[in-house]
Design a protein around this nucleic acid. Sequence first.
DNA 1: ATGAAAGCGCTAACAC
DNA 2: GTGTTAGCGCTTTCAT
Lengths: 335, 335
Amino acid sequence: MATINDVAARARVSTATVSRALNGKSTVDPALAARVQEAAAELGYQPNGLARNLRRQETAVLALVISDVENPFFTAIARGVEDVAQNAGYSVVLCNSDEQLAKERRYLEIALQERVAGVILSPVGPSTNVDTLTGRGTPVVAVDRPLTEPSSDQVLVASRPAAQEATAHLLAAGYLRVGCLTGPAGVRTADDRLDGYLDGLRAAGVAPEAALVRRAEYRAGCADAAAAELLDLESPPDALLLANSPIAVAVLQALAARGLRAGRDIGIVAFDEVPWATLIDPQLSVVAQPAYEIGRVAAELLLARIGDHTRQPTATMLAARLIPRGSSRRSLGES
Amino acid sequence: MATINDVAARARVSTATVSRALNGKSTVDPALAARVQEAAAELGYQPNGLARNLRRQETAVLALVISDVENPFFTAIARGVEDVAQNAGYSVVLCNSDEQLAKERRYLEIALQERVAGVILSPVGPSTNVDTLTGRGTPVVAVDRPLTEPSSDQVLVASRPAAQEATAHLLAAGYLRVGCLTGPAGVRTADDRLDGYLDGLRAAGVAPEAALVRRAEYRAGCADAAAAELLDLESPPDALLLANSPIAVAVLQALAARGLRAGRDIGIVAFDEVPWATLIDPQLSVVAQPAYEIGRVAAELLLARIGDHTRQPTATMLAARLIPRGSSRRSLGES
DNA sequence: ATGAAAGCGCTAACAC
DNA sequence: GTGTTAGCGCTTTCAT
C-alpha cells in the first residue's frame, strides 16, 4: 500500500511537500503540486488516517452510541446527527449498545481509544459512566436520557408532562381504569413516563392502582408477558399508556389475540410516532417525540463543544406532542 | 492524557514491559505486572488505539455500510453482523449511506483510511466501487445487492423467485390485474423483484401491462406519488406487489386515503416482514427475507476472509419466504 | 517555497 | 524475563 514516501519519491519532492500539496495547507509551487497529484493518482495513494490522526491528535469522526438500532426513535435521532455532522465535515459511526451496559461500556472505551472527536449517547441506564471520556477531554452529549453526573450537554424530551397530558386525555375520553406499561426502573424516560401518568391520575382525582402498572424491557419482543398480565387481570385496565413503540407492538398484538379492539374496548396512547400509526384500525394515538430534532441539536451542541472545550454544559428540553387518534376514542367513528 | 511512557516511569519499568503486561502477550514477572497494573490504574491510563493500530497495521473494527438506517430490514442485518462480530472480539461501526452514492463513497474512503479490518456493505447501486478497498487488501462482503465486480463475497436473497411466487399467489387468489411497485432501476433487488413479478405473470399466461408497473425510491416517504399514480389509473390494478416496507407504508396510506381496503379491494403482498404486519386489518402478506441471517453469514464470511486473505470469493444465496395473510385474500374472512 | 528531521504512542525484534 | 531501539505513516516546526 503506497505511502507518502512512495509519492514523494515518485514526484521527486520531500514528504513534507507531498503533505502540503495534498492537504492544501501551506502554498506549494503549482508545478510541484501537479507532480504530486499525478504521482499520488498513479500510485492510487490513500493517506493513512491512523497515522494522520496519531500525528494530529484529533479525528473528524463522532461516535453515536444508541441503545437500540431497531427502534425507529433512535434511528431518527441518528439521521439528525448525521445531517449536521456531514455538513460540518465530520463522519459519524453508529454503535448499538442494545440496552446492555457491557456493550455500551465497550463502545465508549473504543471511542476513547480511537480518540473520536466527540460522543453522543443515549445512556443505557443510571450507572452509565462517561467520566473516562470527559476526563480525557472528549466531549459527550447525552440524548433521550440524562447522565447521572451532568458534566455533559444533554438533550432531553419533557416526557413527564407529555405522559400526564396523555393520561388526562384518556381520562377525558371517558376511560376509567387507565393503566401504564413503561420501561425498566432506573431508565429515566421510563420513570418519567410513569410519574407523568401518576400526575395525570392525581390531577383528575383518580386513585392510582398498582395492579394497573407494569414494567418491561424497552426492546422489541420483550413486553409480551407484561402485556398479557395486564390484559388478563381480573379487573383489567380499560385504557393504557405505553412508554414506547416496541411496547406498543406487543400490546397491540396481545389485543388482537384476545379479539379486543383499541379505542372501543381499551384506550391506547403510545409514546413515539411510527410510520404505521395511521395504518392500523383504529389509528394509534401517540405522543410524538422530536427525534430528528434531538439528533440535530445534540450534534450542534457537540460540535460547538469540540470547537470550544470551555463551554458550560447545557441542558436542552424539547417538547413532545400528543397526537390523538382513534385508539384513544371510545366512539365507533372512523379512526 | 497518560501515555505508556508515564505508566512505565511510574512502575519503574520499560515501556515494552508495560505493553507486554497490559496485553498479556509474553509472560511477565507477576510482581512487575502488578506494579504496571497499579500504575496504569492510578494514572487512568487508556491505550491510544490510533498508535496501536498504526503500529500493528490492523484494527479490530468492521465497518457496516447500509443504505438506509431507517429501514428495519437493514437494521436487522446490523444486528446479525454485530452478534457474530462481538463474539469474535470485533466491534462494528455502522455507517448510513442513505441510498446516496456520495455518502457511500465517503464512508468507504474513511473505512479505507482508518484501516478497518473489513467492510460489509449494501451497495447503493451498480456504480458502487470497492476496488480501492479490495486493491488494498481490505476484505469486502456485499449484502442484499451484488457488486458489479464480484471479487468479493456476497450474501444475497433470491428475490426473483420469491417475487414470482408472490405474484403467482396473488393470481391464484383471483386477482386479475396485478401491478408492481418496485425500487429504482439499477438497484438489483428492485430489478429482480420486477423480473420475478413478470415471471409470475408469464407463468400464468397473463400479459404484462406496462401501465401497472412503477418505480420509486426505496426510502420512506418517496413512494407516495408512484402509489397515487397507480391507484388513480383509469383501470387501476386490483393487486400490487411491493418491493419493500417503506413502499408498503406509502401504498397502504394511499389506500386508506381512498377508502380502499387491502385484500377485498386490492390484493397486496410486500417484501419484508415488519413488526406491524399483523397489526393492520387485514394483516399484511409479506415476503419475509432472512435479514438477521444475512448479517450473520456476511460477518462470518468477512471474518474468515480477514483470517485468510487468499480465500476465494463466495456467493451465498438465501431464500425468502412468502407469508400469506389477509391482504392477499379476496374473501372477507378474518385477516 | 522547500527540505530535513523530530516525534505522535505504541509494539515487536533484538539483545542481554 | 526485561530493556533498548527501530519504526508504523504522517504532519509540522525549523532551517534554508
